[in-house]
Design a protein around this nucleic acid. Structure first.
Lengths: 148, 148
DNA sequence: TATTGTTATACTCTATAACTATA
DNA sequence: TATAGTTATAGAGTATAACAATA
């Protein structure tokens, strides 16, 4: 097993790739986030995306998003006021409130997602076939990395 | 030229890769940013990193970071107070102030960068040799994408 | 008494408008 | 008069502490 092709990168090479890959991901993330949104701030979008999966109480959302409960109260207020989220009383526990996406909320989440995808999609389209396949393969590894 | 290997991905495949790749980059970026920092907020780190390249005036920094000048004034203040940045008068133009990193500022930038790299580096190290080389190649394409 | 959610208050980051000093 | 920077003030987003309603 002395075939260099079978070996991983050297520690130095690995460190260089780590730095460059991290920077590239952060820059892409930044570019995507700076794309025009439907006047929905990042923390608001996070909440809408969570509620898209399933209705949640404010307390659950606070825990998921790792913010204090009063912070979530204030994050939710304008979303309810704008008609993107509805509040319903929990029949089983009078203390709790259940938040759900309205149809307008669903539409907003999808529109923002489409915009963000469009940024990446237009850039991928300009690449050559080999590079497109390279990124398609790399994406699977990156997704695993991010999920760890 | 009907060899399918020579063709790019189909529009549907491209859209799927765009979505997945974007999400992976955003998640990695988020994970890296959430690593413990030396009590330096993201916007403060941006300024320190700029000053590492070269000394700058507050006005230049405001323009580069795309914030209002008074915002930059307030961003800089605690960095000067903590001894990470020094202010010197511009001998050629009495209105201007030149900001530079102190040695403590340099050390802080490098320490934060090392921490961020460590997150990515430890994960790359666990990958197989082929995946490491795949990401090394993909990084070059991603960097180009981010720079556009 | 413990828990869910809100209100009260304060700190940080951002902005625009007004001010000071220099060109 | 124009420019660089700061100060004044205000609007979000965040936090902790105190409160109300319910379990």
């Amino acid at each position: 097993m002395t075939d260099p092709q079978a070996l991983g990168l050297s520690p130095d090479e690995l460190a260089q790739v780590a730095t460059d890959l991290r920077l590239a991901c952060m820059r892409i993330s930044r570019r995507v986030r700076f794309e025009p949104t439907h006047d929905v701030a990042p923390h608001q979008f996070s909440v809408l995306a969570r509620l898209e999966q399933a209705p949640r109480t404010p307390g659950e959302l606070a825990q998921i998003e790792r913010v204090a409960r009063p912070t979530m109260t204030r994050t939710i207020a304008p979303l309810v006021q704008r008609g993107l989220v509805t509040r319903t009383a929990d029949p089983a526990d009078g203390r709790q409130v259940v938040l759900s996406l309205t149809s307008a909320g669903h539409a907003t989440v999808q529109a923002i997602r489409r915009q963000r995808d469009a940024w990446m999609c237009s850039r991928l389209a300009r690449l050559g076939a080999a590079e497109q396949r390279l990124l398609a393969d790399a994406e699977r590894v990156l997704a695993r990395l991010a999920a760890e």
